[in-house]
């Protein structure tokens, strides 16, 4: 059986600065993997390569056996056509640190946009599905509210509904609680936890160590553009094998 996600020797440079120096990672259907590490370790960049928000210069990323973003023909590596990349992006869903809801659309319209434009769904069907997912994140009553009328936690839940409604094979969470006031963090984490229990495959970049500990089937510690250590959360957090991880865990707070 092929892995859901397979990253091989991923290299990414910004100009001359190499931020990913050969990352390998495989992920099975239904896994929940948290990616931790200090800022600048490359964890967000890695996530953004998976849906081609960042270009990468070396290595391959495959989802369900399909190579993402690039194709190699006759030894020449070239970017796939935009339309193809757009289609591949729809295989993953992403939630952002800054929510990035479309401010001129209601919560329901935010969720519907991709369904109508990308999935070519009829508006009625899209609306029904949007309402179902807004209900799942506990915000059906706010479906006609605009993002500006919602709290940060509510906006992030709508953003998650928007991503998940597209029925992605894999969900990417990029520090989704970092921009939230502390009292709003939990409602968002609860939504993610519920998705994990439903068997959603998820890659979660996070600073919430307790959450990572509780929700993940595996944890990846990124260090200076490489995977520093990985394993199940219990072993990782209780018995770190490397100096770096031990150091990192010491400076992080569990709460």
């Amino acid at each position: 059986m092929t892995n859901l996600l397979e990253i091989r020797d991923l290299h990414k440079r910004y100009g001359t600065v190499e931020v990913l120096k050969g990352v390998d990672c495989a992920m099975r259907q239904g896994e929940v993997i948290s990616i931790i590490g200090s800022s600048g370790s490359g964890k967000t960049t890695m996530l953004r390569c998976i849906n081609m928000l960042e270009e990468f210069q070396g290595g391959t990323i495959a989802i369900d056996g399909q190579e993402i973003g690039y194709e190699t023909a006759g030894g020449v590596r070239r970017r796939k056509p935009e339309r193809e990349i757009a289609r591949q992006r729809a295989m993953t869903g992403m939630a952002f640190q800054q929510f990035n809801l479309f401010p001129h659309m209601t919560a329901a319209a935010n969720v519907m946009l991709g369904l109508v434009k990308v999935k070519k769904m009829g508006r009625d069907e899209a609306r029904t599905l949007a309402e179902k997912w807004l209900d799942r994140v506990g915000l059906l009553s706010r479906k006609d509210h605009y993002p500006g009328q919602l709290s940060g936690g509510q906006q992030q839940r709508v953003a998650i509904a928007r991503a998940i409604a597209m029925n992605p094979k894999l969900m990417l969470f990029d520090e989704v609680t970092s921009a939230l006031d502390p009292e709003l963090v939990n409602e968002v984490l609860q939504v993610i936890k519920a998705l994990a229990e439903d068997g959603m495959s998820m890659l979660i970049v996070t600073h919430e160590m307790r959450f990572a500990y509780e929700v993940s089937s595996r944890v990846i510690f990124m260090n200076q553009g490489r995977i520093g250590e990985e394993g199940n959360p219990r072993e990782m957090f209780l018995k770190p094998q490397t100096e770096r991880l031990a150091e990192f865990l010491k400076t992080s707070t569990f709460n």
Partner: peptide, 20 residues
């Protein structure tokens, strides 16, 4: 971030321009 959010749900650059 608006463009990125559009990309993430699979919109093309043209769709992002016209809808967002």
């Amino acid at each position: 971030g608006q463009r990125e959010a559009g990309l993430a749900i699979g919109l093309t650059e043209m769709q992002i321009r016209t809808s967002i």
